[in-house]
Design a binder for these strands. Structure first.
Lengths: 226, 226
DNA sequence: ATTTTAGATTAAGAAATTGTTAAATCACCA
DNA sequence: TGGTGATTTAACAATTTCTTAATCTAAAAT
């Protein structure tokens, strides 16, 4: 798996643990950042916008829960996953942690294997959408990085506009995009083009990927069905 | 928090646990439904369209995983969160439940406080985005984003005006909407159309969703009964 | 019981929206 | 600069949705 595109931030005041966990996770290919107290954790989080934060509950100065509360107040860290490290069997901190906005907890002492599979599971569940590749149905794959579309594993070339349009629809399958929305997101706010332009592009895409995937919702717009 | 707007379904074969969990969650204000086996769980899920289902993995007759697989096949339950209850110490990355479409697991024995905070965490995280769904009764779901209506989990296509009209009624079930109100909200303040136009639209909707849901209130208007 | 009124039903044509095609324009690159 | 493919326009066809009008039905009022 391409773990290298995930940023993890570990916040713990014990150097040993920090190093130990950092080492384990780096070996799996993750980009690892560390901080040894709550304040530093917050500032690193704001700077790096990690995908997942592993945070010790008990720390001197600022405890993990307060730190998480502050992190959750930051809009750009809205989607960031947070995992608490707690001493075994402390129910109390688990609860407070969830209230503060944590997504999971792991009890100490930590076994690296457990940590890793847990981290992977969380990432898989929550971030599966924006992984560059969008899979719409088994036979349609859109690779945003490579700028290509695969239909039944066969590469299909789409010109820029068609690609953008298809990508937009595919990013939220089944969602109906109004013509307005499509204009704004594909053509841009300022560009003014005729009414039939979208239709023509849709038609061209349909010619290439078949007529079944893009559905017309008359009076509203288009959607990519899944 | 307004926990009362969330429906939870607990499925477990042990009466004790069912009661115990149900009690704890009700105390928090959630609407709680229970089922003591997989089959019953599925039918209750289809009827109530809960926001979250707590399901024991090990049950006689139909195990939790099979039940979840079936639940995931129902379109109206697409967004429902599913939490598994598992025996202690099974490393959760190994559990087939995730494959089946579960969103989390909780190990037995269950501490109510942990359960509650976990449930809250899941609801908080997952349901803040897709507030576009209106559920009227178990068998009628209106999805504004997808512009589709599900009747018993089966998709129904409505043209724009019909959709708007049904959505309006569904947004406040049991409220009677006057013709005036309907004209203003569906057709707009300026458009002038004949008196029978609404009737015809109502008729078309009834053709598609059945005659029972939309009631005529003679002399006043229409309402969607629940 | 009869009349009155509001709503139900139906089908037809009007209106709105999208599909299709070909040709014109644009943008980029050898 | 000419050529190539991408993009847009324009005209018309096809389709779907909306509205109307005429007739029918059922409930309320007299």
């Amino acid at each position: 798996m391409d773990n290298d595109k995930y940023k993890l931030l570990i916040v713990d005041d014990e150097e040993d643990i920090l190093e130990f966990l950092g080492y384990s996770l780096k070996r799996e290919g993750f980009q690892v950042f560390t901080a040894s107290n709550g304040k530093d954790g917050i500032s690193k989080a704001k700077k790096e916008i990690p995908h997942l934060i592993i945070m010790d509950v008990m720390m001197p100065e600022m405890d993990g829960i307060s730190a998480v509360e502050e992190i959750r107040n930051n809009k750009s860290l809205d989607e960031t996953l947070i995992v608490f490290l707690t001493a075994r069997s402390e129910d109390y901190s688990q609860i407070a942690g969830f209230e503060a906005g944590a997504d999971d907890y792991i009890a100490k002492p930590i076994k690296p294997k457990v940590l890793i599979s847990r981290v992977k599971a969380l990432l898989r569940r929550s971030l599966k959408k924006d992984s560059g590749k969008i899979v719409v149905v088994g036979n349609l794959v859109i690779d945003q990085e490579k700028f290509e579309v695969l239909l039944d594993g066969k590469k299909i070339i789409l010109p820029k506009k068609e690609f953008k349009l298809l990508k937009l629809l595919a990013a939220s399958p089944n969602k109906v995009f109004t013509r307005e929305e499509i204009f704004v997101k594909v053509w841009g706010d300022d560009v003014i083009v005729g009414d039939r332009t979208i239709d023509v592009h849709v038609r061209k895409i349909r010619e290439k990927i078949g007529d079944n995937l893009i559905k017309t919702v008359k009076g509203i717009g288009y959607k990519l069905e899944n």
